[in-house]
Design a binder for these strands. Structure first.
Lengths: 112, 112
DNA sequence: TGACATACCTATCACTGAAAGGCATACACC
DNA sequence: GGTGTATGCCTTTCAGTGATAGGTATGTCA
């Protein structure tokens, strides 16, 4: 009933999107491929995941948009706002904490 | 429609349960606390998560059970079967691959 | 007596990411 | 001219997971 803000390990697409946009602005279609390429095809988030996510992040003020038409095709470029940067820092810290804890359990020599 | 066997990053409770049981047999209530303690309170999976999971793993042949009464209280001890060990190895490898890929994206100096 | 820890269990729900679509333009090729 | 593919945007629907919140029963200790 009170779902955690970012329940457990979810929110990885968000984490990656914010990370990539931290370097430079990108548009949705570009992000989908950038994630795949940056992870050497290990991670694939389809457009059905990325687009709604971008809309949500924009609505929350974590991203700002800029529309541009190139070669007759319209693109929507997304950039990280200060709010988005804070959000990334929080998500990132949370991610490291959790994966660190899991690694601890996995690698512990023996559990008494 | 064709949900991956272990969709994306899910299955962490399963991973941890199999890991802990690899060392020694334990009962449900004990596992709940063991996970919390082994992770220094960073990870908490309630009984509502652990018990159904144990039942599923037993049904799948990954765990075997042994009932024992101690101090008037009944306990169900779970132990990992060979099938369970394989399952753990697969889950573990999958986990390392994914978190490794995410780390790559997060830590990359810059994305061109 | 009452409270709390132990020990098992189930039913229900929200949310995420997965899947599968749809729309439109540009470009290459035959 | 027609067909196919890549680009670029979008939405709707769905399954599965873990979260929540219950319920039962015994032992112990104040």
């Amino acid at each position: 009933m009170a779902p955690a803000p970012s329940a457990f390990l979810n929110g990885v697409p968000e984490l990656l999107v914010l990370r990539l946009l931290r370097d430079r602005e990108m548009y949705g279609y570009e992000l989908v491929q950038a994630i795949r390429e940056a992870s050497a095809d290990q991670l694939t988030f389809a457009e059905g995941v990325i687009y709604p996510l971008l809309h949500t992040l924009e609505r929350d003020g974590a991203l700002s948009t800029r529309r541009q038409t190139i070669n007759g095709r319209s693109r929507v470029y997304y950039a990280v706002t200060p709010t988005g940067r804070e959000r990334f820092d929080a998500l990132s810290a949370h991610w490291r904490t959790l994966t660190g804890a899991i690694a601890t359990v996995l690698e512990a020599p023996r559990h008494a």
